[in-house]
Amino acid sequence: MLNVGVIIKLEPDFSEGNVSYNSDGTLNRAETKNILGPHSAVACNAAFYCKVKYGAQISIGTMGPPIAETALRQAQVLTNAEELNLYSDRLFAGADTLATAEVLKNGVGKMFGGGIIDIVFSGHRASDGETGQTGPQTAWKLGYTFLGNVIEFNIDSDRKVVIAKRLISLQGMDTIIEEVESPLPVFITIDPSYRSIYNTVSQRLLLNKFRKEGRKRSEDYRQFLKVYTSKNLDLDPKRVGLQGSPTIVYRVEKIPRARTNRKTEIIDPSNPNNIMPLITKIIQLARGK
């Protein structure tokens, strides 16, 4: 059986109505709800695809405070996962990506009792502003082949390889879709544009069955939950959390406004006299004059 792992993250919910900003435009973290991050959800969908198509069993992991359980639960709804893992320890707090990857490496190492995980998925980035570094760093520490920006994949179980399509877009260039083949195990960060496609009737039947089961399982998700600390992940405390992070946040400031050469004219649109010259100008430009 194919073993699939997913690493996910609890993130602020940026969707309309849930996100709250301070008056200076910064995120109000206390007021903003936290959910399973949207990119993590896409990674979950990819794992679920493996379950429907190849009969995989799924293990989900997250490093975070106890509240991150809620993300695991949401992930179970999406994946019908057999196993949920919370890596939670005060020592992990304040980790940068390298120190996070250190924990996730050992976490993935413990999935399904410690065998090889054939495919591990991570999200493209954490919501909006994060780095996208955690996935590839975890992959490197695990020694798994890394594939980024994957938009489609198929597994050849006999040959134990994955064939994947990746998106490459570089500054000023047309986008490239690259098709690659790699032996298992692999670590895949899934592109935001990934969509699972279920072609056959039997797949759709399975999909519905697993969806139902997933919802059911999630009602009693604690039964599937394992909680790990740095000790039972065999981690060196010097390599995790703030202590194990090469980087620190030194300063946060407002970005000064850019100096520009434009002389801004402010227009009050309620007065038609203000609008007319503008209209003429737009029409001229539209006509290429």
Partner: peptide, 23 residues
């Protein structure tokens, strides 16, 4: 470069060199 190639390459190179990275 913070693009599709460099973002991942920077992550894995710095993981291999065991040092820190800002994106």
């Amino acid at each position: 470069a913070a693009d599709n190639i460099g973002r991942h390459l920077s992550s894995t190179v710095l993981a291999e060199l065991d040092s820190g990275l800002a994106s």
